[in-house]
Design a protein around this nucleic acid. Structure first.
Length: 501
RNA sequence: GCCCCCAUCGUCUAGCGGUCUAGGACGCGGCCCUUUCAAGGCCGAAACACGGGUUCGAGUCCCGUUGGGGGCACCA
C-alpha cells in the first residue's frame, strides 16, 4: 500500500530538530511504499506568524536533500502574509498528484464549508463567549479543583445568530461515551468523553483551529498515515471523532515519541544546537543527520544490528513497526561519530566541495575555481581525521597559507638540536633528488634516509613534520609533502634548517 | 489538580514466555597497528526501576508503586 504522508509545520520559527525527526519518519514511510511526502504550512494563527520562517523551513528540507511531492509553490509563497518566495521553491505543477494549495490561510473557504456541514448535521454549534468570560469560567472550575471542560449547556448566550460574531464548537457525542484511538505505535488508547471539551473549530476571525484544519486537509489531500509528535495524543480523540462525523475513513494514526535533551526534558532552546541550520553551520552533513535522527526511536529489529545507513538503505528498510514508543534523548557524541562515518563515505571531490565554505569562514583564502582540485587531493589525507566539516581548517591551513618559521625548540622536539639539524639537511638533499615528487617515492626515499643517518622514523619524521607544516599534529607526512610540492617543501625545510643553524 | 503516554547498560537500542550466564552501537578504559593525530582490529567495565500477581517458567503478560514526559487555549 502506497502511503501519502505530510509534515505540517506552523511558520512560527526555526525548524526544530525534533520536528525534523518526525518529518524524516513520515518521509521514509512514504518513500518506502513508493508514495508521496509533502509539506503543508499551518499558518492559521495570525498572532504567532513569524516572517521568513516558511522560507527557512523549506530551505531546511532542501539542505537535507528531502524532495517534496507537494508543497507551497512560488505563487503560493508570494501570497503569504509576508512574501515567503525563494528560488528553491517548487514550481507550479510540481505537485505529483497531491492537491494544493499547501498553505492553510489559502484554504479558508474549505474549513468554513466543512464547519457549516457539521453545523447542519448536528455535530457542532455556535457560541460567542468572550475570552474574558471563558477565562473566568476556567478560573472558577479550577477553584473548585476541577478541570475546565466547555460544554454546550454552559453557554452564556444560547441564541447566537449566524450573522453576529461567533465561533463554531464541535459536539462531543455521545456525551457519556468513549472514543478509542488505534495508534500504530502505541496500540489502542481509550479516552473518556467526559475529559474532552467542545473544541472550537472555527475561530471568530474566520480561521480554523488546528483540529478542524488538520482533519479537513489530511482527508482532502489524501493523507493515509498521520505522523506527528506525541504531544498531540491528548487531542487525537477529537480528530477521530471528526473523521467519524464526516464519514471519512480514518487514517493510520502514529504518534511518535518526543525527542528529549540531555537533561531528559523536552528539547528546547537551552539544549544547544536547535535548528537544522545550526547543525549545518556546525559542520554536520545531512547524510549523518538523517541517519542519526532515524536511529532516534527507530531500529531495524529482527536481530539485525546495523547502525550506519545511507539514505537509500533507510528508505528500503524503514517501517513503522520498528518505531519505538519511548522518548529518546539526543546524544551529540553519537551524532559526531556518525558524521565522521558519513564524511569518510564521501567521494574526495564531494568532500572538497563541501569544505570550501568552512575553510573560507576560517579565513583560509580558498578560491573554489582554483583550489578545489588541490582540496580533492587533500581530502583523503584528512577524511578519517575529521568528525565535522569545521574540524578541517586547522588540519589544512598550511596548505594554503605560508607558515611562520617554527622556533628551534619546536623543531627539535625531543631530539638534540644538532641531530635535528642533521635530519633537516639530509631530508633537504633527499627531497631535492626524489623523482617523481609523489607520495610512494617520497616515502621510500625518506624511510631509506632513516637507515642512512641512523635515526628512527618517528624521530626524523617529527622534525620534518614541524618544519613543513608548523604543527606537531598534522595529516600523514608523505602525502602532505607530495601535495605541498617540491618547491614549497624545500623552501620550508630550508628556512627551518637556517633556524637551527 | 485532572487526563494521557513512557520505563533494558551513561546514551540509542535488540529482545515480541523457555534459546538471556540479556545482544549490538556510541561514549568510556586497556592492548595491538602506527611517522603525529586519526581511522581500524581485539579485549574490558556497564542495564532488565520497585512490589505484587499469572505461569512449570517473566526482561518479555496483568495490576499497583515510584520515576520521567506530554496535554488540559478562539496556539500549533
Amino acid at each position: 500500500m502506497k502511503a501519502r504522508t505530510r509534515f505540517a509545520p506552523s511558520p512560527t520559527g526555526e525548524l526544530h530538530i525534533g520536528g525534523v525527526r518526525t518529518a524524516i519518519f513520515a518521509w521514509l514511510l512514504a518513500k518506502h511504499t513508493g508514495g508521496e511526502f509533502f509539506i503543508r504550512i499551518e499558518d492559521t494563527d495570525q498572532d504567532r506568524y513569524v516572517p521568513g520562517s516558511t522560507r527557512r523551513i523549506l530551505e531546511s528540507f532542501q539542505w537535507l536533500g528531502i524532495e517534496l511531492d507537494g508543497g507551497p509553490d512560488h505563487a503560493s509563497l508570494a501570497r503569504m502574509k509576508t512574501n515567503e518566495d525563494f528560488p528553491g521553491a517548487l514550481a507550479d505543477g510540481e505537485y505529483r498528484g497531491v492537491p494544493g494549495p499547501f498553505v492553510q490561510s489559502q484554504r479558508l473557504h474549505l474549513y468554513r464549508q466543512w464547519a457549516e456541514w457539521l453545523l447542519e448535521h448536528g455535530y457542532a454549534y455556535r457560541a460567542n463567549e468572550t475570552p474574558e468570560e471563558l477565562a473566568r469560567m476556567r478560573q472558577e472550575a479550577q477553584a473548585r479543583g476541577q478541570t475546565f471542560i466547555f460544554r454546550e449547556h454552559m453557554r452564556l448566550r444560547h441564541d447566537v445568530r449566524p450573522d453576529e460574531p461567533h465561533v463554531i464548537r464541535m459536539r462531543v457525542l455521545p456525551p457519556n461515551g468513549q472514543t478509542v484511538l488505534h495508534d500504530a505505535i502505541r496500540g489502542s488508547i481509550t479516552f473518556d468523553h467526559s475529559a474532552i471539551d467542545d473544541q472550537v473549530l472555527l475561530k471568530m476571525d474566520g480561521f480554523p483551529t488546528y483540529h478542524l484544519a488538520v482533519v479537513v486537509d489530511d482527508h482532502l489531500q489524501g493523507v493515509t498515515h498521520v505522523l506527528r509528535g506525541d504531544d498531540w495524543l491528548p487531542s487525537a480523540p477529537k480528530h477521530v471523532l471528526l473523521y467519524q462525523y464526516f464519514g471519512w475513513p480514518q487514517p493510520v494514526w502514529a504518534h511518535v515519541p518526543n525527542v528529549l535533551g540531555t537533561d531528559g526534558k523536552k528539547l528546547s532552546k537551552r539544549h544547544g544546537a536547535q535548528s537544522v541550520f545550526e547543525f549545518r553551520d556546525q559542520g554536520y552533513i545531512p547524510e549523518a543527520l538523517i541517519n542519526f535522527l532515524a536511529l532516534l526511536g527507530w531500529a531495524l529489529g529482527g536481530g539485525e544490528e546495523q547502525n550506519v545507513f545511507t539514505r537509500d538503505e533507510l528508505i528500503a528498510r524503514f517501517s513503522l513497526e520498528g518505531v519505538g514508543s519511548s522518548p529518546a534523548i539526543f546524544d551529540y557524541a553519537k551524532l559526531d561519530w556518525l558524521n565522521g562515518v558519513h564524511i569518510r563515505m564521501l567521494r574526495d571531490d564531494d568532500l572538497a566541495q563541501r569544505l570550501v565554505p568552512f575553510l573560507q569562514r576560517a579565513d583560509i583564502p580558498i578560491e573554489p575555481a582554483r583550489d578545489v582540485a588541490k582540496l580533492t587531493r587533500i581530502a583523503p589525507l584528512i577524511k578519517e581525521r575529521i568528525k565535522k566539516l569545521t574540524d578541517a581548517a586547522p588540519l589544512v591551513d598550511f596548505f594554503f597559507v605560508d607558515i611562520p618559521i617554527p622556533p628551534a625548540e619546536a623543531l627539535a622536539g625531543k631530539l638534540d638540536r644538532a641531530d635535528a639539524l642533521r635530519a633537516l639537511q639530509a631530508t633537504l638533499a633527499c627531497l631535492r633528488a626524489v623523482e617523481p615528487f609523489e607520495e610512494p617515492p617520497i616515502e621510500q626515499a625518506m624511510r631509506a634516509l632513516c637507515d642512512a643517518i641512523g635515526m628512527k622514523p618517528s624521530q626524523l619524521f617529527s622534525v620534518v613534520r614541524v618544519a613543513v607544516t608548523g604543527k606537531t599534529v598534522a595529516p600523514p607526512l608523505f602525502g602532505t609533502i607530495a601535495v605541498l610540492g617540491r618547491e614549497t617543501t624545500l623552501q620550508r625545510l630550508a628556512r627551518a634548517e637556517a633556524q637551527l643553524r
